[in-house]
């Protein structure tokens, strides 16, 4: 699978060096919206310059190239074992080429073998579908922003959040408040309401596969997403927590069924260095098109 290997390496390179267009547009828009002459505006200008430089030099946007998360939509019959082996090899080679930093550490020994491969690294999520298309999406999830993710179990006394949509709103806004200054904002939230603890976090991350300018098909969630972004930007936290109008670039919410006893709200936070790309592959494994 020579061609697949090359395609995946190219996917990693581009994901690491470029933010997708929808994210770039949101950053440019927020730069125009910030008050001139403020430190918020300066910070966004530096971010904008960084995006431009990284793309031109084909270098990682941020030195933390993050956790490597693959999401694969595959036709029935894909050999997942071979695919996973190829993906791991692609990660190793991309690391050698400097597209990824040597960024993966054995949690027991503290050793970094420099390959970015080990238990749980990279992570691959496979989904079968009935279409013949093979699509591979990649998210590089930074550590600083991962650290400010939060999971709430409702009712939550500290925030006064009950088991309803208003309670969800309260805890999501609390997560934004607590994340300020950390996690390299302006940020993007991926949220899952419901599920068990693991599913909740996992689904919150899948929200990062959505484009920033899409509209949630569930009207209540679409309204909540908009309201969270608006309210967060009214709090005056701003880029890097310097103060300003741009705290969030987006918020994406999904629901999962829960058992009656549990009510989790899982919030994942993505930094401005929002690295997400995807490709469609032809039957030989060559890149047919880009998804974002």
């Amino acid at each position: 699978m020579h061609s697949l290997l090359e395609s995946l390496i190219e996917l990693i390179r581009r994901t690491s060096a470029e933010v997708p267009d929808d994210v770039h547009r949101a950053i440019v828009g927020s730069l125009e919206n910030e008050k001139k002459g403020t430190i918020a505006e300066s910070a966004l200008k530096i971010i904008e310059r960084n995006i431009d430089l990284a793309k031109r030099k084909s270098q990682p946007l941020c030195q933390d190239t993050g956790s490597v998360l693959f999401y694969v939509d595959a036709p029935i019959g894909l050999d997942q074992i071979t695919f996973a082996e190829t993906a791991r090899e692609a990660v190793k080679q991309a690391t050698k080429k400097g597209y990824l930093r040597q960024n993966s550490v054995d949690s027991l020994t503290g050793k970094n073998d420099g390959t970015n491969c080990g238990p749980g690294a990279p992570t691959l999520h496979f989904h079968q579908h009935r279409s013949p298309d093979l699509q591979v999406r990649l998210v590089l999830k930074g550590g600083g922003c991962e650290n400010v993710g939060a999971q709430y179990s409702l009712p939550d006394e500290a925030t006064g959040a009950n088991r309803d949509l208003n309670g969800c709103r309260r805890v999501i806004l609390d997560a934004v408040l607590q994340a300020q200054g950390k996690g390299c904002g302006p940020g993007i939230l991926g949220v899952c309401i419901g599920g068990d603890r693991a599913t909740g976090y996992e689904w919150s991350k899948t929200q990062f596969l959505r484009r920033l300018d899409d509209v949630n098909p569930v009207p209540e969630l679409a309204a909540l997403e908009q309201e969270i972004v608006k309210t967060s930007n009214d709090l005056g936290i701003g880029p890097m927590g310097f103060g300003g109008k741009t705290t969030l670039l987006g918020c994406k919410i999904v629901t999962a069924n829960r058992v009656p006893a549990s009510y989790f709200v899982s919030v994942s936070y993505m930094c401005w260095a929002y690295r997400r790309q995807g490709i469609t592959l032809d039957s030989s494994g060559a890149i047919q098109g880009w998804l974002y």
Binding site: G160, D164, L165, N166, R169, R170, L173, D174, L177, Q180, G181, T231, D234, L235, G236, I237, G238, G241, F242, G243
Partner: peptide, 24 residues
């Protein structure tokens, strides 16, 4: 500390927002 000041101000803004927002 700017961090302290922005946190205080945003925390107050959020409390105000929650107090005034209609319950859904």
């Amino acid at each position: 500390s700017l961090h302290e000041e922005v946190f205080k101000a945003s925390n107050a803004a959020l409390s105000g927002h929650i107090a005034s927002a209609p319950a859904h």
